[in-house]
Design a protein around this nucleic acid. Structure first.
Length: 197
DNA sequence: GTTCCGATTATCT
DNA sequence: GATAATCGGAACT
């Protein structure tokens, strides 16, 4: 239950945290049970970065990004899915790390239930959390409940874990057109739970 | 006021 | 590989 202390979020910049969070375990203590997985893929969104939601101005949607580091930023994407971010950078500065994929460690059955996996066409453990929208569903993350939630005091937390692989690959980010050339995506080499690559 | 388009995914061909 | 599903900002008129 030893989760990352608040000062970890406060004393590292966004790009450092994007790499530091790899290998840590994202845990959600929900009423239905505990679900968790090791973070194996992240992306950084920085101040002044055209792909960052906080690039233009503070809105109702991106308000959580301007909160203190260690806050959750959950937003709806494509009108039907959600993405989970760890807010980074000083309060008032809109930066965050997008969690793109997890290697499931706890509550696998519950995750499968939430994903509505058909046993006959089950994608298996690998497809359970191998994408930002998928892991939000699998962990039971709800924007109403968890946007603005603190990773240090709330139901969703991050704790240090064994490094599944210390070999980190750096590439460009996925699914964006602005700032597409920036090397802000990080993932473990050879890890089968990464969304792509 | 209206149109366009995404930090995606499942389900086709 | 292509596309539908679906909605709130942003960028227009």
């Amino acid at each position: 239950m030893t989760s990352l202390p608040q000062h970890v979020y406060e004393t590292h910049d966004t790009l450092t945290l994007a790499r530091l969070l790899l290998g840590c375990e994202l845990v959600h203590h929900s009423p239905e049970g505990v679900t968790a997985g090791i973070i194996v893929e992240t992306e950084a969104y920085l101040w002044g970065d055209p792909a960052c939601h906080a690039y233009r101005k503070k809105t109702v949607r991106n308000a959580a990004m301007f909160g203190p580091p260690g806050t959750l930023y959950v937003y709806q994407i494509y009108g039907m899915y959600h993405c989970l971010n760890v807010v980074t950078g000083p309060e008032g500065v809109g930066e965050a790390v997008l969690i793109r994929a997890l290697e499931p460690t706890e509550g696998v059955a519950l995750m499968g239930l939430r994903r509505g996996l058909d046993p006959t066409t089950k994608p298996g453990l690998r497809g359970l959390c191998s994408g930002p929208g998928k892991l939000v569903i699998a962990l039971g993350i709800d924007r109403q409940l968890h946007n603005f939630s603190s990773l240090t005091t709330g139901p969703v937390s991050i704790r240090p874990s064994r490094p599944t692989n210390s070999d980190i690959i750096t590439t460009t980010r996925i699914g964006i057109t602005q700032g597409a050339d920036l090397p802000y995506r990080f993932y473990f080499r050879g890890n089968g739970f990464v969304s792509k690559g």
